[in-house]
Design a protein around this nucleic acid. Structure first.
Length: 422
RNA sequence: GGAUGGUUGGCUGAGAGGUCUAAAGCAGCGGACUUGAAAUCCGCCGUACCGCAAGGUACCGCAGGUUCGAAUCCUGCACCAUCCGCCA
């Protein structure tokens, strides 16, 4: 959510930002509604002031004087009820509109419609070459008996999967290496709920838009698609202390995604599944743009370093305007080389939001002068499983169908080669 | 699923229809005293909105209601705590 004062004073910037994100929003209508809100508010405040004044006179009034005052108060009250009702209607519309106003993308964000227009800013390593025809991860893992997609579909439905044997070892090894790597970067590990109340989704900007992407329970909670939701809501409605340092969480949770509208996409394998696990970096810092930018680079770099530990070729892109969410100011995606498809596939997203989320969540801190402010928030994928297995398996496959374990994972897997149960 | 109690400012906590402009304490800020600190004493100290200002309005979990007037009474809901039942 943006500050209404900011929107009023910078309507052109807000409009241009929405346009860059290809998001439809009627700022002029919002401003018209806000004018009405202010007028009604003032009218009501004036009447209430009168009511308060007369009410205190009432205490001392006696007899006929009292009757006269009572009569006047009744008149006043009937007028107030109408204004009150009008204000309520206007406020509902106002709130609805305010929730749809997107945050303004940074000037360094390129123009574009979709992920096809994202701009490559870095490339690490060369696409893996093979002296044989490489297979995709579905084929390799199935042959090795470390994943079962057929029974996954039988039991869990479309996009269901089982990991087995060394597939589980590998996933577990990634978690452990991630815990170590990101903890050393100064993040505090946290295990967070996935079953989360609606407020937290509104606060992080996943609702009210995006309802169809979420699973919902019969009790009204939603299943979170990322640990960001619970981690950000951790300090909801609180005043936090940022005087010494920023808040940095390394959050682990199961993640659930309906993938509504993605039915034709990535129908095979572990790229796009309904449930998976993820380590996520979540940060709250002082409301300073430079600090947001510095931490954004840092969070993204943490993940790049992790991928470098696994020695998998990757590239980093800066997302174009059309590929940014409602609250994001700027976003980097890290994409890993996937030999089976001969392309780079997204593994990570690092975004910053300024105070867009903390306003919605009502998280504040006191600055050096003791004033309350909304902090800035950022988040970035640390590493998701099992999607990371796709790139490990395909890049490390051997001609005989086995898979070499990346050096950094060997201590956690307990062996340097996965031979399966053939 | 059932029962009871609770939700007040950064924290603890009073408050039972008009003086609540929310007591008091703690924490915080400023000052006095002190070589400095501690202790002590004095003063200040919630948030948001409207307004150039003076000032005004709202907020005591949330939403309604009663009343001329609600932190206070009534209704519904949410959340927290404890107990019972059920399950693990």
């Amino acid at each position: 959510m943006l500050d209404i004062h900011f929107i009023r004073e910078n309507a052109d910037i807000v409009k241009a930002g929405a346009e860059k994100k290809h998001i439809n929003v009627d700022i002029d209508q919002l401003l018209a509604v806000d004018d009405k809100r202010k007028a009604l508010r003032f009218e009501l405040d004036t009447k209430k002031a009168e009511q308060n004044r007369r009410s205190s006179e009432m205490r001392r009034a006696q007899g006929a004087e009292r009757e006269k005052l009572l009569e006047a108060m009744r008149h006043l009250k009937s007028g107030m009820a109408e204004i009150d009702a009008a204000l309520k209607t206007v406020m509902e519309e106002w709130q609805k509109l305010m929730l749809t106003v997107p945050n303004i993308p940074d000037i360094s964000v390129p123009d574009g419609d979709s992920d096809a227009d994202n701009l490559e800013v870095k490339r690490w390593g060369e696409p893996t070459t093979f002296a044989f025809a490489p297979k995709d991860h579905v084929e390799i893992m199935t042959a090795l008996g470390i994943a079962d997609f057929e029974r996954g579909a039988k039991v869990a439905g479309f996009r269901g999967y089982f990991l087995k044997g060394d597939g589980v070892l590998l996933a577990n090894a990634v978690w452990q290496l991630a815990l170590k790597h990101f903890s050393l970067k100064g993040l505090e590990p946290m295990s967070v709920p996935s079953l989360v109340r609606r407020e937290a989704f509104l606060g992080t900007g996943y609702l009210p838009q995006g309802e169809e992407d979420l699973y919902k329970t019969q009790d009204g909670e939603y299943l979170a698609g990322t640990a960001e939701v619970a981690s950000m809501a951790y300090y909801m409605n609180e005043i936090i202390d940022l005087s010494a340092d920023s808040v940095r969480f390394l959050s682990f949770s199961p993640c659930f995604r309906r993938e509504a509208g993605a039915h034709g996409k990535d129908v095979r394998g572990l790229i796009r599944v309904h449930e998976f696990f993820k380590w996520e970096q979540v940060t709250l810092c002082k409301a300073e743009h430079d600090e947001s930018v510095r931490l954004h680079e840092q969070l993204n770099r943490n993940t790049e370093e992790f991928i470098e530990l696994l020695e998998i070729p990757y590239r980093t892109v800066v997302n174009c305007g059309g590929d940014l969410g409602l609250g994001q100011v700027k976003k980097y995606d890290i994409e890993l080389w996937v030999p089976g498809e001969g392309t780079y596939r997204e593994i990570s997203s690092a975004s910053y939001f300024h105070d867009f989320q903390t306003r919605r969540l009502n998280i504040r801190y006191r600055d050096g002068e003791g004033n309350l402010k909304f902090p800035h928030s950022l988040n970035s994928t640390a590493i998701p499983t099992p999607r990371i297995l796709v790139s490990i398996i395909e890049n490390y496959q051997q001609p005989d169908g086995t898979v070499t374990v990346p050096k950094a994972l060997v201590p956690y897997v307990g062996k340097d080669r996965i031979e399966g149960v053939r």
